[in-house]
Computed example of a mutant assay.
Amino acid sequence: MQGYVDARKLPGASVLILQDGLEAYFHQTGLRDVAAHLPFERDTVARIYSMTKPVTSVALMMLLEEGRIHLDQPLSDILPEFAECRALVQGATRIDQTKPCAVPTLHQCLTHTAGFSYPFNPGVLPDEMAARKLVFSARSGSLAERTAELSTLPLAFPPGERWEYSVGIDVIGRVVEAVSGQSLDRFFADRIIGPLGMRDTAFTVPMDARDRFACLYTPLAGDAMEFNAAEKSSETLRLTDRSDKSPYLDAQTFSGGGGLVGTIDDYMKFAEMLRRGGSIGGDRLLSPHTLSFMMRNHLRGDIASMGPTSFAEQPMDGMGFGIGGAVVLDPGRARCPGSVGDFSWGGMASTFFWVDPVHALSVVFFTQLSPSSSYPVRPQLKALIHGALQ
């Protein structure tokens, strides 16, 4: 961590490790605001981006346990705007080259096999999404409006055919709203964030935490969210979102795929809930059987076997995908020390977490550098921790 900060590759960072529920290690270094020389501290509030996806997935599984949805349910049962789905034909070069297809299921939305995409992926659909600025960013309108616009586009492929990292879990966030009758921020606060005591976690930076909110940096010359960009900036820590001007100070879009901000201790409470099988501190969110089901591989093979062309927050070889997160199937094929059954995901600002059922580990890493593909901090962190295990 210090090496990355000294080389001006990361502005600052923190890592928290629990084993058997007890704190084994914590370290912080560097700055949350480089220009103001403000330190990156344990209570620094950071953008966790796609680490929101497991939270939204837990929300849907809570509704499943209540018998209010089932995973093979067509998305159109809940969001009628998806009733007439079309997918791009193979080899399409235009967005209007489509054919009728099945409606994605909730399970396919959760596992990135629904046919949705992201603007930063390669392909016809991502290009159209980028042209329309169809993203679920903090100030892009209501979740209902974003999802309705998404329904006017074809899918990248017929549901179930491939794996492609996507806005599918943003759509699941809208499903949670429609089924529960609550806005996603309210559902999170009442059912997940509140019970777990994640006091600094929300879609909008809490008022009493604004002086602890970090700036966001990028090594790119252009869009910090462009994962495939090759153009590097002469400044390795180019400021791209100021803490005092950020859209996260007043979020309008409750992005279930990437909208939360919070602290490292807050997210550790969520990670420990996953590791402990659905409960922490006397509050049970889910059954341990449901959590075990979530953290199994739900694909027919590893991610690589499903022909992805998209960006992913993890390696694809030797990695499966469960409900809202990746699952290690074979550490050797993933080329990174780890345990079979590790459940993890990361965020666009290079944050990362995993829970290890073999060694009873929960690990959360925070920094604020986009895109997350900039440096191999995640496999290096896993290697360091496994090297330290007795």
Rank of each mutant, 00 (worst) to 15 (best):
Q2C: 14
G3W: 02
Y4T: 03
Y4H: 13
K9V: 14
A13V: 03
S14C: 13
V15H: 03
V15K: 02
I17K: 01
G21I: 04
H27A: 15
Q28I: 14
G30V: 09
R32G: 08
V34K: 09
A36F: 08
A36R: 15
F40I: 10
R47I: 03
I48C: 11
K53V: 05
I69D: 07
L71C: 09
L75P: 02
S76R: 00
D77V: 07
I78V: 14
E81C: 12
F82M: 03
C85Y: 01
V89R: 15
A92V: 01
T93S: 11
T98M: 07
C101W: 08
P104L: 07
T105Q: 06
C109V: 10
L110C: 15
L110N: 06
F116K: 00
F120Q: 03
N121C: 02
N121E: 08
G123K: 01
L125F: 05
M129R: 05
A131T: 11
A144P: 05
A148G: 06
S151I: 07
S151P: 08
T152M: 15
L153M: 12
P154K: 04
A156C: 04
P158G: 02
P158L: 04
P158S: 07
P159M: 00
R162S: 03
W163R: 01
E164D: 12
E164M: 06
V167S: 10
V171S: 00
E177G: 00
E177N: 11
V179S: 00
S180V: 04
Q182R: 12
S183A: 13
F188A: 03
I193S: 02
G197Q: 09
R199H: 12
A202W: 09
D211K: 13
F213V: 11
C215P: 04
C215Q: 15
L220T: 06
A221G: 09
G222Y: 11
N228Q: 15
E231I: 14
L239D: 07
T240I: 14
D241R: 10
S246N: 13
L249G: 15
D250N: 13
A251S: 14
G259H: 02
T263P: 03
T263K: 03
M268E: 01
F270H: 06
M273H: 08
R276C: 13
G282V: 13
D283S: 15
P288L: 12
L291E: 05
F293C: 10
F293T: 05
M295N: 04
S305M: 12
S305N: 14
S305G: 11
T309I: 09
S310D: 01
A312W: 00
Q314P: 05
Q314V: 10
M316Q: 11
G320C: 05
F321K: 04
F321G: 04
I323Y: 00
I323F: 12
G325S: 08
V327A: 07
V328H: 01
R335L: 07
R335T: 15
G338I: 04
G347T: 13
G347S: 08
G347F: 06
F352N: 02
F353M: 06
W354K: 05
H359S: 09
H359I: 02
S362K: 05
Q368T: 12
S370F: 09
S370R: 09
P371D: 13
S372G: 13
Y375A: 15
R378S: 02
P379W: 07
P379M: 02
Q380L: 15
K382D: 09
K382N: 10
I385T: 02
A388C: 04
Q390D: 07
